[in-house]
């Protein structure tokens, strides 16, 4: 399986769409080497704005650019992109429903060494709670490119969460992508797993192991966490014995919460795999942290088995 760099895919696709659409501009807060807006800066310095380490200003400037007809891509680590300028996003961008794209890079626990201050466990929750805001977590490099491209057609603000870790390619050029559409990666009859981001691959691994035990699991990639496609949730819920959700995020307010909200009137058992209301911490590798916080194929397997 091909392992790819999502940040790099993002940076290169941003440059590609900027070449085609003169409205696209990029803003970064001293992290262009990490967020990979460096490609845009090198090729199109006039449409790249270094904003200094000043995320709040950066977001409001993006609002101004958007109100002047531009499509600004605002970039930083997810804690600093979604957390630091929260009210600038809320009032300046989401309330007027502007076409600002906020890129939360090095999301989740993927900046392992830097620890809790640099790891976002609640960014999906805060962004999801803001009216008008769409929330998208691309599953691989190919989907990252498609999200960037599709975002140009979307009306309203979008928060895009991108991991620092390399991830296996689960989709290809021909895979259909639409904002708000889920992707069934593997069929199954007993349990449906709704997963997002790095946990999608773990869900597929869990499915392999479970199938050897005679348990049949369907794996759905939910890259658009908001607006959540309720019809598809119902469709993939019908006929199975239970639901498992999996995300590299707090169990409070993320994908699991969104699915539970959608299914609250249904009589179906649901289990959530996520971070148990805790901050991150430093570690040598991302994998070590995923293991510690129970963001593993094994956790998914245990939840599935508990439902049967």
């Amino acid at each position: 399986m091909k392992i790819e760099n999502l940040r790099e895919a993002y940076g290169k696709e941003l440059l590609a769409v900027a070449r085609e659409d003169s409205r696209v501009v990029a803003l970064d807060a001293d992290l262009c080497g990490s967020t990979m807006t460096i490609f845009m800066e090198k090729e199109m310095p006039e449409r790249f704005f270094e904003m200094g380490i000043a995320e709040q200003n950066m977001v409001s400037v993006a609002a101004g650019l958007s109100l002047s007809g531009k499509i600004p891509f605002v970039n930083s680590f997810s804690v600093f992109a979604a957390g630091q300028p929260y009210n600038q996003i809320r009032q300046g961008v989401a309330l007027p429903n502007l076409n600002v794209r906020i890129i939360g890079s090095s999301c989740g626990l993927s900046d392992a060494g830097d620890g809790a201050t640099h790891q976002s466990v609640e960014d999906i929750a805060i962004m999801r709670a803001i009216p008008n805001m769409a929330v998208i977590v691309p599953v691989d490099a190919e989907e990252t490119r498609k999200v960037v491209r599709a975002s140009l057609q979307h009306q309203g603000p979008i928060y895009i969460r991108i991991t620092r870790s390399l991830l296996p390619a689960l989709t290809n050029r021909h895979t259909e992508f639409k904002i708000g559409k889920m992707l069934c990666l593997a069929e199954g009859l007993d349990i449906t797993v709704f997963a997002t981001g790095i946990m999608v691959f773990k869900a597929l691994q869990a499915r392999e192991i479970l199938s050897k035990k005679g348990i049949s699991v369907r794996v759905i990639n939910v890259s658009t966490i908001k607006p959540l496609n309720i019809e598809e949730i119902f469709k993939y819920t019908k006929g199975v014995k239970g639901i498992v959700t999996a995300e590299e995020h707090s169990i409070i307010g993320g994908l699991g919460s969104a699915v539970v909200e959608a299914l609250c009137d249904m009589k179906i058992p649901i289990k959530i795999v996520g971070i148990q209301d805790q901050f991150g911490q430093s570690a040598g590798t991302h994998e070590e942290l995923l293991e510690y916080y129970g963001l593993t194929a094994q956790s998914i397997i245990e939840k599935v088995e508990a439902l049967l």
Binding site: G113, D114, G115, A116, T117, H118, Q281, S282, A283, G284, E288, L289, Y292
Partner: peptide
């Protein structure tokens, strides 16, 4: 420093 479980985290605590 910065290893899993160390009280010397990546940033001051």
């Amino acid at each position: 420093t910065k290893e899993f479980g160390s009280f010397l985290q990546g940033h001051p605590e």
